[in-house]
């Protein structure tokens, strides 16, 4: 296994020639949990709290979290704000562009079930887990920075409990079409798509 050959690179050499024996899970999980680079994007007022959490008073850097402005370099997507039906295919596309392993934090009431836009709204997606798998939900409208930090620490705990080579037990997509076992994201011409199929936003339409 190539991974085992790379292990020495993960362990800092101990002075005087000592050897550190450790578990593969522990090393990889700590590496992942201690450098969750998150994607720099926000949708609504939750993004203001996200920025406040990233700034010096609360300081995401303490958790090893640094924002990246491209999905190609990120491990974590924090969906911060109201997700409209028009924006939903774009967010799905951003998620597909992130390399594995990737995690999602749904921040605020809007991303869970529409929040204040649950009633009498025609344009808001009622829950971001209709289109992408969500690991951690952070409640609040918007959540305070402490709540978001708590969610990030909860995600670190979740990552540290993973096993190498075993499929992750993710809470995932809540809203799956029971007949086809696929998420409720369709393309207008041919119907349902596979969860990891990459399409451009104009090829997608969200079933609300």
């Amino acid at each position: 296994m190539d991974l085992i050959k790379k292990i020495p690179a993960y362990i800092e050499r101990i002075p005087n020639g000592g050897i550190l024996m450790t578990g593969l899970d522990w090393v990889l999980n700590n590496a992942k949990a201690s450098s969750m680079w998150y994607m720099l994007f926000g949708l609504a007022c939750c993004a203001i709290e996200l920025m406040a959490t990233g700034a010096s008073r609360y300081d995401f850097d303490r958790l090893g979290m640094i924002f990246r402005a491209t999905p190609r370099q990120t491990d974590l997507m924090i969906v911060a704000g109201t997700l409209t039906l028009k924006m939903a295919p774009r967010v799905k596309l951003l998620y597909e562009q992130m390399p594995d392993p990737k995690y999602v934090i749904a921040m605020g009431g809007c991303t869970m079930h529409g929040g204040p836009f649950y009633h009498d709204s025609y344009s808001v997606l009622k829950g971001v887990d209709k289109i992408i798998p969500v690991d951690i939900h952070v409640a609040g409208c918007p959540p305070r920075p402490e709540a978001l930090l708590n969610g990030c620490i909860a995600l670190q705990d979740l990552i540290k409990g993973e096993k190498v080579g075993r499929q992750r037990d993710r809470p995932g997509l809540r809203h799956i079409d029971p007949s086809t076992n696929l998420p409720l994201l369709v393309r207008p011409d041919t119907g349902l798509i596979r969860p990891n199929q990459i399409l451009m936003p104009d090829q997608l339409r969200v079933l609300s």
Binding site: L85, K86, Y118, H119, D120, S121, Y122, S123, K126, P188, D202, R205, S208
Partner: peptide, 25 residues
């Protein structure tokens, strides 16, 4: 300008009804 290009209807008309609209009790 605001709604998706394939949207049907004009939402701010008073008689607009979206099929999946959850009406506030």
């Amino acid at each position: 300008l605001m709604m998706p290009d394939d949207w049907e209807g004009h939402p701010l008309r008073k008689d607009y009804a979206h099929p999946n609209l959850v009406v506030r009790p």
